[in-house]
């Protein structure tokens, strides 16, 4: 049983969720104004999952993420100003402007990268768990991925290997109901993605991905099992993608009332706020103070990013290899 979250955990979690929401709302506005380019996939609606899972992780634990990765990066402690500068393609970006939205990584923070290939983060996290086990670091590796990725071979191969080797890994499936523009139920014959764990004799859990407290409890159990040597788990979080597949998605393929219902009744930030104030865990003024902080942070991140220099074109071939920059050309 996971202990209920402390006040401090709740404050951090709310700050994380609000930062993700504000960061991405800023991105949408910047794209709409024509000030930002590239392929952007927003995490809006799914914030409780990254916040609740990462609340159980330290810097020596690893996460692998997806194309929809801003939330995982922020929850794992990647610097928001660096992320914004990365999206603007600046030298001061997390990856010096070489990665962009789908490739933000900060290995020093245990963040193995967003990933442009659906399912590719799952074996990466499996490998990080193998390192933790063989080097006895006490670390845990978490793979975040969507319902769509659970149809990739990489998912099945990785779960089989992790279960067979009893690796300290947690596979967090964020089932948001849509794989790009196709409903999950149209391409997946099982009712719950979590059922797929049975094929690998793996522990499975299902959480309400809009409810921070539920994800926190279930992820706590899965991570404690992994850390304690009891092996991997598959945790399915039922959630919803509020803003479509990518920024600019015309959303012609899904009924408007479907999204409206989720947004009106199941917004993870509003559910969180209602519960913590109702139960007296955090006050309204606590929350508003965090909102003010976060708004200032995001505004500052945008301002700094816009003023930061671009890399020099002469650095094009730098960093292809660890051993020699000059080899990039050959």
């Amino acid at each position: 049983m996971t202990r209920p979250p402390t006040t401090e955990v709740l404050q951090v979690a709310y700050r994380t969720m609000r930062t993700i929401r504000s960061f991405e709302e800023a991105l949408v506005a910047l794209v709409t104004q024509g000030r930002l380019g590239g392929f952007l996939h927003t995490y809006v609606g799914q914030e409780a999952i990254a916040a609740a899972v990462c609340a159980h992780l330290g810097e020596h634990d690893h996460v692998a993420s997806t194309h929809r990765g801003h939330g995982h990066c922020i929850a794992k402690g990647v610097d928001v100003r660096g992320m914004m500068a990365e999206l603007f393609g600046r030298r001061t970006g997390t990856c010096g402007g070489r990665g962009g939205s789908m490739h933000i990584a900060d290995l020093g923070k245990g963040m193995l990268g967003a990933n442009g290939i659906v399912g590719a983060g799952i074996p990466l996290a499996t490998g990080a768990a193998l390192t933790a086990k063989l080097k006895r670091t006490g670390g845990v590796a978490v793979a975040f991925f969507g319902d769509g990725a659970s149809n990739q071979g990489a998912f099945h191969e990785s779960l089989n290997m992790a279960a067979n080797w009893s690796l300290p890994a947690v596979y967090v499936c964020e089932n948001n109901g849509w794989g790009e523009f196709t409903p999950t139920a149209f391409v997946v014959p099982v009712k719950d993605i979590a059922e797929r764990a049975r094929a690998y004799a793996m522990h499975a859990l299902i959480a309400d991905g809009m409810d921070f407290f539920d994800v926190y409890a279930q992820a706590g159990e899965a991570i404690a099992r992994a850390r304690g040597g009891a092996g991997p788990s598959l945790l399915e979080c039922k959630t919803y993608r509020f803003l479509g597949h990518y920024v600019g998605d015309p959303l012609v393929y899904r009924a408007k009332h479907e999204a409206d219902d989720w947004i009106r009744h199941r917004d993870p930030l509003r559910l969180f706020e209602a519960r913590v104030t109702r139960e007296g865990l955090l006050t309204e003024s606590n929350l508003r103070a965090i909102d003010v902080d976060v708004a200032a942070l995001v505004a500052d991140a945008v301002a700094r990013a816009q003023d930061a220099p671009f890399p020099d074109a002469g650095e094009l071939l730098h960093g292809v290899f660890a051993t020699s920059d000059a080899e990039g050309a050959r």
């Binding site: 490998g127 390192t131 990489a154 191969e157 290997m161």
Partner: peptide, 22 residues
Amino acid sequence: TPISEMGILGAAVGAAVTGLRP
């Protein structure tokens, strides 16, 4: 390993960036 080349290669990359030399 199992006969899972994708799983093996992918895990090896994850292991390589986290401190092993596979």
